[in-house]
Simulated assay, not measured.
Amino acid sequence: MRRALAERPLPSADDHAARFARQREADRTATAEDYVELIADLLREEGEARAVDLARRMGVSQATVTATIGRLQRDGLVETKPYRGLFLTEEGGRLAAAAKARHDLVVRFLLALGLDHETAEADAEGVEHHVSEKALKAFARFLADRETPGR
């Protein structure tokens, strides 16, 4: 019989530290992923991505967007062109596509569990950055099993 989660012993200090380190890294990369994903969406839907649009959609100040875009430029993910807005580099495009695929998988999984679309989308924003590749593969297997005809 499964032991209740509250009754399980603490993991080793090294394992515990590794878990927290992974979460801190996920926190650091979440912003970059959110920005490049939104830039890609704006370019696809509206033909342009401007700092003012990112600020409005993310609910942050333009100063925050400017600082973040500067970091994304230094990291080789985003390019700016005078009077033309924001563009993704090849690497930024790959990161945006991976972030979008992960987001969509998490949303599909949450919908399959019975959540409504609005809640699934909102919850996916946090889960997508912190879930492991192992869990994502399990989500995909779960969905494949459910979506396979005759099962």
Rank of each mutant, 00 (worst) to 15 (best):
residue 35 Y to S: 04
residue 35 Y to T: 01
residue 37 E to D: 01
residue 37 E to L: 13
residue 38 L to P: 04
residue 38 L to H: 08
residue 38 L to W: 05
residue 39 I to M: 01
residue 39 I to H: 04
residue 39 I to G: 02
residue 43 L to Q: 05
residue 43 L to Y: 03
residue 43 L to V: 13
residue 43 L to F: 06
residue 43 L to P: 09
residue 44 R to A: 08
residue 44 R to W: 08
residue 44 R to H: 09
residue 44 R to L: 04
residue 46 E to S: 10
residue 46 E to K: 14
residue 49 A to L: 02
residue 51 A to G: 11
residue 52 V to D: 00
residue 52 V to C: 05
residue 52 V to R: 11
residue 53 D to F: 13
residue 53 D to V: 14
residue 53 D to A: 10
residue 54 L to C: 08
residue 54 L to V: 13
residue 55 A to P: 14
residue 56 R to C: 01
residue 56 R to H: 06
residue 56 R to V: 11
residue 57 R to T: 06
residue 57 R to E: 02
residue 59 G to S: 06
residue 60 V to W: 02
residue 60 V to G: 11
residue 60 V to L: 07
residue 61 S to N: 03
residue 61 S to Y: 07
residue 63 A to S: 08
residue 63 A to E: 02
residue 63 A to I: 15
residue 64 T to M: 12
residue 64 T to C: 04
residue 64 T to G: 05
residue 65 V to M: 07
residue 65 V to G: 10
residue 65 V to E: 01
residue 67 A to P: 12
residue 69 I to P: 12
residue 69 I to D: 00
residue 70 G to W: 09
residue 70 G to S: 06
residue 70 G to C: 01
residue 71 R to A: 05
residue 71 R to C: 09
residue 72 L to S: 08
residue 72 L to F: 12
residue 72 L to H: 10
residue 72 L to M: 05
residue 73 Q to F: 12
residue 74 R to C: 03
residue 75 D to M: 09
residue 76 G to K: 14
residue 76 G to I: 03
residue 77 L to R: 08
residue 78 V to T: 06
residue 78 V to P: 10
residue 79 E to Q: 12
residue 79 E to Y: 15
residue 79 E to C: 02
residue 80 T to C: 06
residue 80 T to V: 15
residue 80 T to I: 14
residue 80 T to F: 09
residue 81 K to C: 05
residue 81 K to L: 10
residue 81 K to N: 00
residue 82 P to E: 01
residue 82 P to T: 06
residue 84 R to K: 13
residue 84 R to C: 06
residue 84 R to I: 13
residue 86 L to F: 07
residue 87 F to W: 15
residue 88 L to P: 05
residue 89 T to N: 02
residue 90 E to K: 10
residue 91 E to M: 06
residue 92 G to D: 01
residue 93 G to R: 09
residue 93 G to H: 06
residue 93 G to S: 02
residue 94 R to G: 00
residue 94 R to E: 00
residue 95 L to G: 02
residue 95 L to D: 00
residue 95 L to W: 09
residue 96 A to T: 09
residue 96 A to D: 00
residue 96 A to W: 07
residue 97 A to R: 10
residue 98 A to I: 08
residue 99 A to L: 01
residue 99 A to D: 00
residue 99 A to R: 10
residue 100 K to F: 00
residue 100 K to M: 01
residue 101 A to P: 14
residue 101 A to H: 11
residue 102 R to M: 02
residue 103 H to K: 09
residue 103 H to W: 07
residue 103 H to L: 03
residue 104 D to T: 13
residue 105 L to T: 14
residue 106 V to P: 08
